[in-house]
């Protein structure tokens, strides 16, 4: 695919098995240290068990969300960066200028996705750059190319808008109005709406 004017992620939660091939492909390509996770897979699990006279009853549900930086149209990380290290280029890709970043972490705190990741080793912020090198060469980002379930795709934001309408989100993601992410989520059958607390982040230690 030629380099889109503005790249966007498309994530079909119906297909995701939570396998994390995307996360490891990203860590391998970018040599990420332990704890630095440019792409994270959240397990959203809810439902309850009750003991009854006839045995146990339950209404358990579970689904996964694979999320990296969403290269938002209103990137709050850029607004909150005191040194202008965090910036957005002409393709909408949000990046850190390593020469300017002082590692204050304001971007990470302000981002509702927690996307910018602090590197202890480098003493500064790091983040997903949409695999700019790959997509400029006409190849998909490595997370997309890695997905065994073909749940993670990518495309041009405007083209996807034309096809799918406005980007959408599900719980526990923030409402798209917050930052206007370049991320289209196809909801899992059990997905809870944004704002719902019925689905818990079941793997906090992994994200």
């Amino acid at each position: 695919m030629p380099m889109p004017a503005r790249p966007a992620f498309l994530f079909d939660s119906r297909l995701c098995t939570g396998c994390k091939a995307c996360m490891i492909a990203c860590k391998d390509k970018n040599d990420l240290d332990p704890g630095v996770r440019w792409r994270r897979v959240t397990e959203c699990t809810g439902g309850e068990w009750t003991r009854t006279a006839e045995g146990y009853r339950q209404n358990v549900f579970s689904y996964y969300l694979s999320v990296s930086c969403n290269h938002c149209e209103d990137p709050i990380c850029v607004q909150s960066c005191p040194t202008t290290a965090m910036h957005q280029d002409g393709n909408g890709i949000v990046s850190v200028d390593p020469k300017k970043c002082v590692g204050c972490k304001y971007c990470s705190w302000s981002c509702p996705y927690g996307a910018p990741q602090y590197s202890e080793r480098l003493g500064r912020m790091t983040k997903c750059d949409f695999c700019r090198d790959e997509i400029e060469a006409g190849r998909p980002p490595v997370c997309v190319a890695a997905c065994p379930s073909r749940a993670l795709q990518w495309g041009d934001l405007e083209a996807l808008r034309g096809k799918l309408g406005q980007p959408m989100a599900v719980a526990p993601l923030p409402p798209v109005s917050a930052t206007r992410p370049a991320l289209f989520v196809t909801p899992h059958r059990d997905a809870r709406p944004v704002g719902s607390t019925a689905g818990l982040k079941a793997n906090p230690e992994e994200v």
Binding site: A21, M23, I24, P140, A145, P148, R150
Partner: peptide, 25 residues
Amino acid sequence: RMDTDNLGADDYGTHQIRACLRGRA
């Protein structure tokens, strides 16, 4: 770097044999 089978067409039956997270590691 460790990549996988993600070149060319991904037509079912001769589709890409994409490694899981372990192979990627």
